[in-house]
Amino acid sequence: MNWLQKSTVYALLLFLATIYSLPLLVMLSGSLKSPAEIQASPNQLIPDGWHWENYAEAITAMPFWRYLSNTLVLCVGSVLGTVISCSMAAYAFARLKWWGRDWLFAVLIGTMLLPWHVTMIPRFLLLREVGLYNTLGALILPTFLGDAFSIFLLRQFFRTIPEEVSEAARIDGLSEWGIYWRIIMPMSVPALITVGLFQFVAAWNDFSGPLLFLSNQDKFPLAYGLEQFVSSYSDQTHLLLAAATLFTLPIVLLFFFAQKTFLKGIATTGLKD
Protein backbone atom coordinates (compact mmCIF):
# COMPACT_ATOMS: atom_id res chain seq x y z
CA MET A 1 0.00 0.00 0.00
CA ASN A 2 1.18 3.51 -0.67
CA TRP A 3 1.11 6.18 2.04
CA LEU A 4 -2.17 7.66 0.83
CA GLN A 5 -4.02 4.34 1.09
CA LYS A 6 -2.37 3.64 4.40
CA SER A 7 -3.38 6.96 5.94
CA THR A 8 -6.94 6.52 4.67
CA VAL A 9 -7.10 3.16 6.45
CA TYR A 10 -5.71 4.66 9.66
CA ALA A 11 -8.11 7.60 9.50
CA LEU A 12 -11.09 5.32 8.98
CA LEU A 13 -10.04 2.97 11.76
CA LEU A 14 -9.39 5.79 14.20
CA PHE A 15 -12.73 7.37 13.43
CA LEU A 16 -14.64 4.11 13.85
CA ALA A 17 -12.69 3.08 16.94
CA THR A 18 -13.60 6.42 18.51
CA ILE A 19 -17.28 5.82 17.81
CA TYR A 20 -17.07 2.30 19.20
CA SER A 21 -15.27 3.20 22.39
CA LEU A 22 -17.04 6.48 23.13
CA PRO A 23 -20.13 4.86 24.73
CA LEU A 24 -17.97 2.99 27.23
CA LEU A 25 -15.90 6.05 28.01
CA VAL A 26 -18.95 8.20 28.68
CA MET A 27 -20.42 5.41 30.80
CA LEU A 28 -17.29 5.50 32.93
CA SER A 29 -17.15 9.29 33.10
CA GLY A 30 -20.89 9.62 33.67
CA SER A 31 -20.68 7.25 36.61
CA LEU A 32 -18.27 9.69 38.27
CA LYS A 33 -20.21 12.88 37.66
CA SER A 34 -22.51 14.76 39.96
CA PRO A 35 -26.24 14.65 39.08
CA ALA A 36 -26.09 18.30 37.99
CA GLU A 37 -23.11 17.79 35.75
CA ILE A 38 -24.62 14.79 34.02
CA GLN A 39 -27.53 16.93 32.84
CA ALA A 40 -25.23 19.70 31.70
CA SER A 41 -24.95 20.49 28.05
CA PRO A 42 -22.45 20.41 26.41
CA ASN A 43 -21.24 17.19 27.94
CA GLN A 44 -17.60 16.91 28.74
CA LEU A 45 -15.70 13.67 28.95
CA ILE A 46 -13.59 14.44 32.01
CA PRO A 47 -15.77 15.04 35.08
CA ASP A 48 -15.15 18.23 37.07
CA GLY A 49 -14.92 16.35 40.31
CA TRP A 50 -14.50 12.64 40.75
CA HIS A 51 -17.62 11.52 42.54
CA TRP A 52 -16.56 8.09 43.71
CA GLU A 53 -19.38 8.26 46.24
CA ASN A 54 -21.76 7.45 43.36
CA TYR A 55 -20.52 3.90 43.59
CA ALA A 56 -21.01 3.68 47.33
CA GLU A 57 -24.47 5.15 46.90
CA ALA A 58 -25.41 2.70 44.15
CA ILE A 59 -24.24 -0.21 46.27
CA THR A 60 -26.33 0.86 49.24
CA ALA A 61 -29.35 1.84 47.15
CA MET A 62 -29.93 -1.82 46.27
CA PRO A 63 -29.13 -5.09 48.02
CA PHE A 64 -25.91 -5.20 46.03
CA TRP A 65 -24.01 -7.79 48.05
CA ARG A 66 -27.05 -10.08 48.07
CA TYR A 67 -27.33 -9.78 44.28
CA LEU A 68 -23.61 -10.32 43.85
CA SER A 69 -23.52 -13.45 45.98
CA ASN A 70 -26.50 -14.86 44.09
CA THR A 71 -24.72 -14.15 40.83
CA LEU A 72 -21.56 -15.85 42.07
CA VAL A 73 -23.52 -18.91 43.21
CA LEU A 74 -25.09 -19.06 39.76
CA CYS A 75 -21.77 -18.65 37.99
CA VAL A 76 -19.87 -21.22 40.04
CA GLY A 77 -22.73 -23.71 40.01
CA SER A 78 -23.35 -23.52 36.29
CA VAL A 79 -19.65 -23.61 35.40
CA LEU A 80 -19.30 -26.79 37.47
CA GLY A 81 -22.43 -28.23 35.92
CA THR A 82 -21.36 -27.48 32.39
CA VAL A 83 -17.79 -28.68 32.76
CA ILE A 84 -18.79 -31.96 34.45
CA SER A 85 -21.77 -32.90 32.32
CA CYS A 86 -20.47 -31.68 28.99
CA SER A 87 -17.06 -33.28 29.38
CA MET A 88 -18.70 -36.64 30.13
CA ALA A 89 -21.06 -36.35 27.19
CA ALA A 90 -18.27 -35.16 24.94
CA TYR A 91 -16.12 -38.09 26.06
CA ALA A 92 -18.89 -40.49 25.13
CA PHE A 93 -19.30 -38.84 21.75
CA ALA A 94 -15.61 -38.54 20.96
CA ARG A 95 -13.90 -41.60 22.44
CA LEU A 96 -16.47 -44.38 22.84
CA LYS A 97 -18.19 -46.38 20.16
CA TRP A 98 -21.84 -47.16 20.73
CA TRP A 99 -24.93 -47.79 18.72
CA GLY A 100 -26.66 -44.64 17.48
CA ARG A 101 -23.83 -42.34 18.54
CA ASP A 102 -23.55 -40.31 15.38
CA TRP A 103 -27.28 -40.11 14.98
CA LEU A 104 -27.72 -38.79 18.50
CA PHE A 105 -24.91 -36.29 17.96
CA ALA A 106 -26.76 -34.94 14.95
CA VAL A 107 -29.87 -34.50 17.10
CA LEU A 108 -27.78 -32.71 19.70
CA ILE A 109 -26.40 -30.28 17.12
CA GLY A 110 -29.97 -29.83 15.87
CA THR A 111 -31.00 -28.54 19.30
CA MET A 112 -28.57 -25.65 18.83
CA LEU A 113 -30.79 -24.36 16.05
CA LEU A 114 -33.93 -24.79 18.13
CA PRO A 115 -35.06 -21.42 19.46
CA TRP A 116 -35.19 -21.39 23.25
CA HIS A 117 -38.76 -20.12 23.01
CA VAL A 118 -40.04 -23.45 21.79
CA THR A 119 -38.82 -25.25 24.89
CA MET A 120 -39.22 -22.33 27.28
CA ILE A 121 -42.74 -22.99 28.55
CA PRO A 122 -42.45 -26.77 29.03
CA ARG A 123 -39.05 -26.30 30.63
CA PHE A 124 -40.54 -23.76 32.98
CA LEU A 125 -43.36 -26.08 33.97
CA LEU A 126 -41.03 -29.06 34.30
CA LEU A 127 -38.71 -27.26 36.69
CA ARG A 128 -41.67 -25.85 38.60
CA GLU A 129 -43.04 -29.37 38.92
CA VAL A 130 -39.87 -30.58 40.64
CA GLY A 131 -40.15 -27.69 43.09
CA LEU A 132 -37.39 -25.48 41.77
CA TYR A 133 -39.50 -22.39 41.06
CA ASN A 134 -38.04 -19.35 42.82
CA THR A 135 -34.77 -21.09 43.60
CA LEU A 136 -31.36 -20.60 42.04
CA GLY A 137 -31.42 -24.34 41.43
CA ALA A 138 -33.84 -23.77 38.55
CA LEU A 139 -31.02 -21.95 36.77
CA ILE A 140 -28.19 -24.24 37.85
CA LEU A 141 -29.72 -27.70 37.47
CA PRO A 142 -30.16 -27.47 33.66
CA THR A 143 -26.42 -26.88 33.25
CA PHE A 144 -25.81 -30.28 34.86
CA LEU A 145 -27.71 -31.78 31.94
CA GLY A 146 -25.33 -30.43 29.35
CA ASP A 147 -25.65 -28.02 26.48
CA ALA A 148 -25.00 -28.66 22.83
CA PHE A 149 -22.46 -25.91 22.22
CA SER A 150 -20.09 -26.92 25.03
CA ILE A 151 -20.39 -30.62 24.21
CA PHE A 152 -19.55 -29.82 20.60
CA LEU A 153 -16.53 -27.73 21.55
CA LEU A 154 -15.16 -30.35 23.95
CA ARG A 155 -15.80 -33.22 21.57
CA GLN A 156 -13.74 -31.47 18.90
CA PHE A 157 -10.90 -31.13 21.37
CA PHE A 158 -11.09 -34.70 22.71
CA ARG A 159 -10.89 -36.04 19.16
CA THR A 160 -7.50 -34.45 18.68
CA ILE A 161 -5.99 -36.58 21.49
CA PRO A 162 -4.43 -39.66 19.87
CA GLU A 163 -6.22 -42.94 20.47
CA GLU A 164 -2.87 -44.54 21.43
CA VAL A 165 -2.98 -42.61 24.72
CA SER A 166 -6.19 -44.35 25.73
CA GLU A 167 -4.92 -47.71 24.55
CA ALA A 168 -1.73 -47.45 26.58
CA ALA A 169 -3.78 -46.59 29.65
CA ARG A 170 -6.10 -49.50 28.99
CA ILE A 171 -3.16 -51.91 28.78
CA ASP A 172 -1.93 -50.53 32.08
CA GLY A 173 -5.27 -51.58 33.54
CA LEU A 174 -7.07 -48.25 33.80
CA SER A 175 -10.87 -48.39 33.61
CA GLU A 176 -12.83 -46.30 31.10
CA TRP A 177 -13.75 -43.98 33.94
CA GLY A 178 -10.10 -43.73 34.90
CA ILE A 179 -9.11 -42.86 31.34
CA TYR A 180 -11.67 -40.08 31.29
CA TRP A 181 -10.78 -38.67 34.67
CA ARG A 182 -7.03 -39.25 34.92
CA ILE A 183 -5.91 -39.03 31.30
CA ILE A 184 -8.30 -37.09 29.07
CA MET A 185 -9.46 -34.43 31.54
CA PRO A 186 -5.95 -33.30 32.60
CA MET A 187 -4.92 -33.16 28.94
CA SER A 188 -7.92 -30.98 28.07
CA VAL A 189 -7.50 -28.17 30.57
CA PRO A 190 -7.33 -25.41 27.88
CA ALA A 191 -10.59 -26.56 26.30
CA LEU A 192 -12.25 -26.92 29.70
CA ILE A 193 -11.19 -23.39 30.59
CA THR A 194 -12.71 -22.07 27.37
CA VAL A 195 -16.02 -23.79 28.04
CA GLY A 196 -16.01 -22.73 31.68
CA LEU A 197 -15.24 -19.14 30.77
CA PHE A 198 -18.07 -18.91 28.26
CA GLN A 199 -20.47 -20.43 30.78
CA PHE A 200 -19.32 -18.04 33.49
CA VAL A 201 -20.02 -15.04 31.28
CA ALA A 202 -23.36 -16.50 30.17
CA ALA A 203 -24.44 -17.04 33.78
CA TRP A 204 -23.25 -13.58 34.80
CA ASN A 205 -25.23 -11.95 32.00
CA ASP A 206 -28.33 -14.14 32.02
CA PHE A 207 -31.47 -12.05 32.32
CA SER A 208 -34.35 -14.09 30.96
CA GLY A 209 -33.66 -17.05 33.27
CA PRO A 210 -34.08 -15.03 36.49
CA LEU A 211 -36.99 -13.14 34.92
CA LEU A 212 -38.79 -16.43 34.37
CA PHE A 213 -37.88 -18.37 37.48
CA LEU A 214 -37.25 -15.99 40.35
CA SER A 215 -39.86 -13.95 42.18
CA ASN A 216 -38.21 -13.01 45.51
CA GLN A 217 -35.83 -10.11 45.54
CA ASP A 218 -33.40 -11.89 47.84
CA LYS A 219 -32.90 -14.53 45.13
CA PHE A 220 -32.14 -12.09 42.30
CA PRO A 221 -28.75 -12.11 40.62
CA LEU A 222 -27.14 -8.81 39.57
CA ALA A 223 -28.34 -8.87 35.96
CA TYR A 224 -31.97 -8.98 37.03
CA GLY A 225 -31.53 -6.85 40.13
CA LEU A 226 -29.99 -4.16 37.97
CA GLU A 227 -33.06 -4.04 35.77
CA GLN A 228 -35.26 -3.66 38.86
CA PHE A 229 -32.95 -0.88 39.98
CA VAL A 230 -33.43 0.87 36.64
CA SER A 231 -37.19 0.89 36.99
CA SER A 232 -37.08 2.51 40.42
CA TYR A 233 -34.16 4.93 39.91
CA SER A 234 -34.72 5.89 36.29
CA ASP A 235 -34.11 9.59 36.98
CA GLN A 236 -30.82 9.09 38.85
CA THR A 237 -28.60 8.55 35.85
CA HIS A 238 -25.35 8.87 37.78
CA LEU A 239 -26.34 5.96 40.04
CA LEU A 240 -27.57 3.86 37.12
CA LEU A 241 -24.27 4.32 35.30
CA ALA A 242 -22.27 3.53 38.43
CA ALA A 243 -24.28 0.33 38.93
CA ALA A 244 -23.97 -0.64 35.28
CA THR A 245 -20.21 -0.03 35.40
CA LEU A 246 -19.87 -2.18 38.52
CA PHE A 247 -21.78 -4.94 36.77
CA THR A 248 -19.71 -4.67 33.59
CA LEU A 249 -16.25 -4.27 35.08
CA PRO A 250 -15.64 -7.91 36.15
CA ILE A 251 -16.55 -9.15 32.67
CA VAL A 252 -14.28 -6.62 30.98
CA LEU A 253 -11.42 -7.52 33.34
CA LEU A 254 -12.03 -11.21 32.70
CA PHE A 255 -11.90 -10.50 29.00
CA PHE A 256 -8.57 -8.71 29.27
CA PHE A 257 -7.00 -11.48 31.32
CA ALA A 258 -8.31 -14.23 29.09
CA GLN A 259 -8.38 -12.42 25.75
CA LYS A 260 -6.64 -15.24 23.88
CA THR A 261 -9.03 -17.88 25.20
CA PHE A 262 -12.05 -15.76 24.31
CA LEU A 263 -10.95 -14.97 20.77
CA LYS A 264 -9.81 -18.51 20.05
CA GLY A 265 -13.07 -19.95 21.33
CA ILE A 266 -15.10 -17.62 19.17
CA ALA A 267 -13.02 -18.22 16.09
CA THR A 268 -13.23 -22.01 16.43
CA THR A 269 -17.00 -22.04 16.86
CA GLY A 270 -17.45 -20.70 13.39
CA LEU A 271 -14.64 -22.11 11.40
CA LYS A 272 -13.13 -25.47 11.93
CA ASP A 273 -14.97 -28.71 12.28
Binding site: F207, A223, V230, I251
Partner: peptide
Protein backbone atom coordinates in the same frame (compact mmCIF):
# COMPACT_ATOMS: atom_id res chain seq x y z
CA UNK B 1 -11.67 -1.68 20.82
CA UNK B 2 -14.11 -3.07 18.26
CA UNK B 3 -14.58 -6.34 20.10
CA UNK B 4 -15.01 -4.96 23.61
CA UNK B 5 -18.62 -3.70 23.19
CA UNK B 6 -19.76 -7.23 22.37
CA UNK B 7 -18.64 -8.54 25.78
CA UNK B 8 -20.57 -5.85 27.64
CA UNK B 9 -23.53 -7.56 29.35
CA UNK B 10 -26.74 -6.87 27.45
CA UNK B 11 -28.43 -5.49 30.57
CA UNK B 12 -25.66 -2.92 31.07
CA UNK B 13 -25.50 -2.10 27.36
CA UNK B 14 -29.26 -1.48 27.29
CA UNK B 15 -29.07 0.90 30.26
CA UNK B 16 -26.17 2.70 28.64
CA UNK B 17 -27.86 3.12 25.27
CA UNK B 18 -31.16 4.24 26.77
CA UNK B 19 -29.20 7.09 28.30
Amino acid sequence: LFYLPSVIPVVAASILWMW
